[in-house]
Amino acid sequence: MRGAGPFTPPAAARRLADALTPRTAPTVLLGHSLGGVIALLTALARPSAVQALVISNTGPHTRDHGDNSLPERIRHQWTPQTRRAFLQACFAHEPPPALMRELERYLGELPAEALLEAVEGLRRIDLSHGLGELRCPVLIAHGELDRRRRVADAQRLAALIPGAELVLLPGGHTPMVDCAGAYNEALDTFLARHLRATQP
């Protein structure tokens, strides 16, 4: 979000799809939260460039999002304290201090206008009628203790994506940190079944 933009999820997905086009090696996109929507949009825009998707803690739309006041906080009260509270809500368990410091630094350096454009852009998206076009294998690895994206969001995704696999993990909004072992096990099992077995 430090470049020229635009920073809406569809614009980010177009840039990612263009970047993936020259690749010849198998590409697995892992998308978390807002990044999950970008990964889904990328696979829909350029299906030949994406061999598999791993999506965590997002949904087809934001109508039931557990943090609907985020755009207003970014616009009017995006202080260090507000940013820290936002990050703390991403975890069901206390994250490693070094990671928290890095996340706070990263979030503090992001231009608020760019972040707001991305967040508001996310709230205009509804993928409910497009996800049925996905044909690559999809794993939905969802932290079931999430306070923003509940299990119902993951279940909606799984119902809309043909053949999607849903795995509920004992973590919050960021299961790859909260329960890294369970997340990695689900990821490894998925890759072994759908990607590695096909490689020479």
Rank of each mutant, 00 (worst) to 15 (best):
H173R: 06
Q88A: 14
E144L: 11
L44W: 00
L131K: 01
P71G: 07
F91L: 05
C179L: 02
E185M: 08
Y106A: 14
R46I: 00
M1W: 10
D64S: 09
V37P: 01
L127K: 00
V151A: 13
W78S: 09
A141W: 03
R150L: 10
D126C: 02
A12Y: 01
H76F: 12
A112D: 12
R105Q: 13
A13H: 05
V167M: 10
G181L: 14
E104P: 09
C90N: 12
R156E: 10
W78F: 09
A112L: 11
N57F: 05
A45Y: 00
G143Y: 11
G108C: 03
L127Q: 00
P60V: 08
L139W: 06
P95V: 02
A19C: 06
H93L: 12
A52Y: 09
R147G: 15
A182L: 06
V54G: 01
D153H: 14
L53W: 05
T62Q: 11
P10S: 03
I38T: 15
D126I: 03
H32D: 05
A12N: 09
A186K: 02
L41S: 00
G66A: 05
C179H: 09
P96W: 06
V119R: 00
P175Q: 13
A39G: 05
R193M: 13
A13C: 05
P137S: 02
H65N: 12
D188W: 08
L157T: 02
I161W: 10
L29S: 08
R150M: 07
T21K: 13
A152R: 11
S56L: 09
H61W: 04
R23N: 11
L187C: 09
C136T: 07
N68V: 13
R148Q: 10
R73W: 07
A141Y: 04
A192Y: 01
A154L: 06
A49V: 00
A192K: 12
R84F: 04
H61P: 01
A89H: 13
L40M: 15
R135E: 06
G35M: 01
P96G: 08
G31T: 02
D18E: 14
V50M: 11
A49S: 06
A49R: 00
D188L: 12
E117S: 00
G59H: 02
G36M: 08
Y106R: 14
R150H: 14
M100S: 03
I140H: 06
T82P: 10
